[in-house]
Design a binder for these strands. Structure first.
Lengths: 189, 189
DNA sequence: TTTTGACCGAATCGTTCAATTGGTCATTTA
DNA sequence: TAAATGACCAATTGAACGATTCGGTCAAAA
């Protein structure tokens, strides 16, 4: 395991526990067992180090979403599974969850940028699936970018936002059936 | 014009200019030309006064939405017009705009409650329209509360959020056509 | 009886100064 | 000689503290 990786691992731990703002480079150096200056031989600054780690996190999230996609299943089934998995990642992945909390509490610019990046990655992932299903003639030809955005926002609204303003949350089955009756219905041939 | 109304008017001015947090009861009293203690003969506390004003604002917003609804037009046309009007209100109504800014900057509890109230009022307004059109046999029978929530969140995403993350905003026509092709399409008989 | 504004405890604000931080680079280490 | 280190520095942050302000109260005034 080389030094760069040790720094990345150490920083991932610290960002996950303390968030971006409260993580110090001194601390990362200690966890990694390197001098603080060594960090700057690999990364220009704190934000570049953070970005490296976030890119890895996004890759991990997409891999988890890809696992639940089953070749041969309908667009709805696969889109639903992938979106649910990515929204679950949002809550169970320690670093991502920490980032969301920090964005709300502090509005750290570096963190706001990351939230935006992750969301764009999700929309892009869904858009690519839409394009594939359209090309296969399995769903209607639609503006895949707008539909991907709509699906993302709609799932976010029902899986997350709904719980904030309603006492009774919606089950995954209820959500799936509702979207089958609405958005996915509109995509059917 | 009675004293209570003068206090309400004064407070509306102050909340609109300075927001909830930065508005003092001393200031409201001065603008209204009353003693500070007089305010408390009508309102238990600052938050109750704020609520009174917010309820009036919500009523005003609903009236503006009702104006753009034309009897005999399709559900899509009317829902679209009403939602666009209510989202426009969000930006043009001085108090509401101030509330949104304050919620983002300070997370004042009283203000967060208000945002939630307004959004619930919008969803309820749309739900009632959905119920009416279903009863008239003009759209499919759907869970009107969930569809109203979906419509609200979708419009908010495309009218507001989209502009934050994309350089080119979507025109009203583009938005209307997109929803015609998706959500409204799913509601058609 | 209604209105007022001085009063009060709690909260907020502005100031000061010590502590901390990200990044740098002279020195040390390999 | 190249890579690693951690003391150093300017800028920023945080803690402490006194002054001020605030929402709400109520005795006094109108």
């Amino acid at each position: 395991m080389d030094r760069k990786q040790e720094i990345i691992d150490a920083a991932t731990k610290s960002f996950s526990l303390f968030g971006y703002k409260a993580t110090t480079m001194d601390q990362v150096a200690k966890i990694a067992n390197v001098g603080k200056g060594t960090i700057y031989t690999f990364f220009d600054n704190k934000e570049v180090l953070f970005q490296e780690i976030v890119i890895r996190m996004i890759t991990e999230m997409k891999q988890e979403a890809a696992i639940v996609i089953i070749e041969g299943k309908s667009f709805q089934e696969n889109a639903h599974a992938a979106l649910m998995k990515m929204l679950e990642f949002r809550e169970t992945h320690q670093l991502y969850a920490k980032i969301i909390i920090e964005e709300k509490e502090w509005k750290t610019p570096a963190v706001q940028l990351v939230i935006s990046q992750v969301e764009k990655a999700i929309v892009k992932f869904v858009k690519e699936k839409i394009d594939k299903y359209i090309a296969n003639g399995e769903i209607r030809a639609v503006n895949s970018e707008l539909v991907a955005y709509l699906l993302f926002k709609a799932y976010l609204a029902f899986v997350n936002d709904w719980n904030i303003t309603h006492e009774k949350s919606l089950s995954e089955v209820e959500i799936a059936e509702f979207f089958q009756d609405t958005i996915f219905r509109s995509l059917a041939l």
